[in-house]
Write a protein that binds this DNA or RNA. Sequence first.
DNA 1: CAGTATCCTAGGAGATACTG
DNA 2: CAGTATCTCCTAGGATACTG
Lengths: 121, 121
Amino acid sequence: MTEPLSADMFPGPGCGDRPMPFRVGDKWTGWVLRCLDAGPRRFSELRVPLHWVTPKVLTETLRAMERDGFLTRTVHDERPPRVTYELTLLGRSLIGPLDGACAWAREHAPEIAEARGAYRS
Amino acid sequence: MTEPLSADMFPGPGCGDRPMPFRVGDKWTGWVLRCLDAGPRRFSELRVPLHWVTPKVLTETLRAMERDGFLTRTVHDERPPRVTYELTLLGRSLIGPLDGACAWAREHAPEIAEARGAYRS
DNA sequence: CAGTATCCTAGGAGATACTG
DNA sequence: CAGTATCTCCTAGGATACTG
């Protein structure tokens, strides 16, 4: 059994505002990758840490990732309905570069902030 | 003396259309990084390989990179005017993750293409 | 529960033309 | 040479409400 995802797994919508010069796929793809890293999740589980993403946009993100072969969408024939999303091997292979990007950001974000502060005109 | 940049250094505008789930900064930031990798370049030099980017957009890209401390812009007091762009250490530090992203794309692009082809609905 | 259906808007990006 | 100045357009993304 995988641990439940925390509602404050990510600091907030502000994440996207930090000086992060890397982007994986669509705006929320990176966060979804993180959420699915530990195992399959259902839609409502993803909505917990990503509560600042509307269901429409989350659906779009998930569909795009499915289309590109990053994850599989499984509809379980139950009542109430249960749908789970799980990373494919291809999707997992994105984690490496994603970690690289995050490491870069963690290391260099202060320099960007400083450069922005010093920038005039 | 650095080698001149080739007009077909990049396949074409289609580059951006290939399944490339990574993005560094703005749309053309990655390409500019590549162009400046070998040494400082002037505006018109950059326009050679990036001839499918309008001057306005290229300027915007360069200004954003300058603002974030990725490159320096030097105006030489000459006639005709000469302006050169050069990567900072911070800008150079982006090359590593960029290479990682490109390696990923080179290795996995076929899988994405296949997934897209197989995707129905 | 797991989404759709609508409507709307900001700004990234491009085309075209002009200038210190 | 190294850019500006306008104008325009598109679509990713969001707000809100509803449904099988």
